[in-house]
Design a binder for these strands. Structure first.
Lengths: 353, 353
DNA sequence: ATGAAAGCGCTAACAC
DNA sequence: GTGTTAGCGCTTTCAT
């Protein structure tokens, strides 16, 4: 039993052909007589050889066929957001049929990140994908760039090698805000994603906002101002999760001078705001309008349908997958920008009064 | 710039040492003078050598350091379930620090599965993990077993090479059912996970139940009978999703002879049932009791807290990760069985009338 | 403590 | 159409 696994050389020997011929029999590339091919396959079966060892193939070809996806340290948090999940679904289903695998890389974020992450440092990968809003100076990104791994960056700064994929969320957000203004709303509050890596929860003052580094947060906030709106309040959520939206909703709405519209920078945050409004006995949209962005499916909000700026999440995954595949083929793909659309929903309406 | 990347040999040459010495400088294994080591490191820096190529290392060591996780074709569906996500979080965070990566493998399930899945067929991996309820005859599993990849199987049949990790869900479910009986319930309905690969939605008759192959579904159903309960109705959901639970809830509860308790085989299904009950104007638990299993956090059900059989999901991920790591070390780990606990919640109470 | 040499398993020129 | 040969980049005995 302790016999080592058969190699292509063993098969070739048993079939009475050379290794290269045996290789051709498996790869299908190159000329080979059906008869010879069959002879090799039979020998393989006899030896219970299960096909070329991927490790040998990889070394030889210089490619691992692996696309690394850097997810934050809290994978559970990332994946509780349908946004990441739908994106990943698009990515995996584009890459899979191409024979390319997705490797999950949990990179420790935050200030007190440990020195070296072995996976980031030395896992084999041909391309890496950085999820929303990656900055040049982030440690994981620096590690990868130093290694010379080409990057596909979502919604962030363009990499030295690789490309970026983004959506027109600023414009979409501006459009949505303009619609809300047209409905008569003047007191508009905004619930944002984190301003930067330190992920605070609470009201945002000018100083805090000026210190913002996360591109997505900044862009969507800019979208609000593009529509000529200066928010009466800006609240920072530490993550895109329903409970943080709920906290924000209570803070913003449980007061006499409450805003008539709350715009959240994600659908999960908006859902939390909506729940808070319900809990406070406010009618939506009669007493307060609520809107989000992402366009995820939220059946449990029924009968409400959240107003949202819809981004094509699965397409984004596909676009990233295609970009990664092209980089693997030695190409240098152009940046991709995907459009957003508006979902009107039922949660915005005329301003009260 | 078309110069190829430097190799360890280049670095050794520049440092004036042999390749093997250079190798030691990086691996740290083996005796080497600090001075020599530094010389090598300096040479590496000068050449902007970023460390040993993982592909070479992998071929040499015969290990890829990759743990494949086979997720169904619909990754989005799998990951919409917090159960998978929490599990994966536990897995990734156990494996990551060990330098082991998790490769997502989307295996086409269903009857009309395509001939060959390139990833399953030939991706490099040292161990594969099969999510809940894997059966020997499933094509992805057969492919992996044929390749000789050791398996860590969750809640399924033990593999030829590898081990299994499971929870005491049958016992937990039986306990929960017994509690419900003790509360006076006699008309108990069950909402199940899929009976088998064809994933039907609707009432389950004896024939359908007899044809069930999915271990998890069978075990939890057995748990109900262990408590001496013969369900007045069994409804099959095609996936563990809130909307399917809702459908089930409406079908089971919108009738005069409705059950007084509905036991679902997942928390997501139970949540759907709860929503349906609310929509039908039924009070929970005064008019109907609802319970699930998994123990996931469901803040949006507030103020209700779902009664549930809690399984230690992150522990499960960790246990699988540890098993995988041990298999990689050439060990042959024993099966692991993890305990369940009861979350009483607020959704079960005395039977009405 | 360092070096020489072998070889992990495979593919792709190139020659026949 | 098939065989020969030369590595891909690394680690690891085994000498020295």
């Amino acid at each position: 039993m302790g016999t080592r696994r058969p190699t292509l050389a063993d098969v070739a020997g048993a079939a009475g052909v050379s290794v290269s011929t045996a290789s051709l029999a498996f790869s299908g590339a190159g000329p080979i007589t059906p008869a010879t091919r069959q002879k090799v396959l039979d020998a393989a079966a006899a030896l219970s050889y299960v096909g070329p060892n991927p490790l040998g193939r990889q070394l030889r070809s210089g490619r691992s066929g692996i696309v690394g996806v850097v997810v934050g340290d809290a994978l559970a948090r990332a994946f509780r957001d349908p946004v990441s999940v739908q994106f990943l679904d698009g990515l995996v289903s584009t890459l899979g049929p191409l024979g390319l695998g997705v490797l999950l890389i949990p990179a420790s974020e935050g200030e007190g990140a440990p020195a070296v992450d072995p996976l980031l440092e030395s896992a084999a990968m041909d391309v890496a994908v950085l999820l929303s809003g990656s900055l040049l100076e982030e440690p994981p990104r620096r590690t990868l760039e130093r290694r010379g791994v080409p990057l596909v960056v979502l919604e962030g700064e363009p990499p030295a090698r690789g490309t970026i994929v983004s959506v027109t969320d600023r414009q979409g957000y501006a459009e949505m805000t303009a619609d809300v203004v047209a409905l008569g709303h003047r007191r508009v509050a905004v619930v944002t994603l984190p301003m930067r890596g330190d992920r605070r929860e609470g009201p945002v003052d000018a100083e805090r906002e000026a210190s913002a580094t996360w591109p997505v947060t900044r862009r969507r906030l800019a979208g609000v101002r593009d529509a000529g709106v200066e928010p009466v309040a800006v609240w920072e959520a530490p993550a895109s999760l329903v409970e943080h939206g709920r906290t924000a909703g209570h803070a913003l709405l449980d007061r006499p001078d409450r805003p008539t519209a709350v715009l959240a920078q994600s659908d999960l945050l908006a859902s939390g705001v909506l729940l808070a409004a319900r809990e406070l006995g406010l009618r939506v949209p009669e007493d307060v309008s609520v809107a989000g962005i992402d366009g995820i499916d939220l059946p449990w909000l029924a009968p409400d349908v959240l107003r949202s700026v819809v981004q094509p999440l699965a397409d984004k995954g596909r676009a990233v997958g295609e970009a990664a595949a092209r980089i693997l083929d030695g190409e240098d793909p152009e940046p991709v920008v995907l459009p957003t659309t508006q979902r009107l929903g039922t949660t915005t309406g005329r301003a009260p009064g």
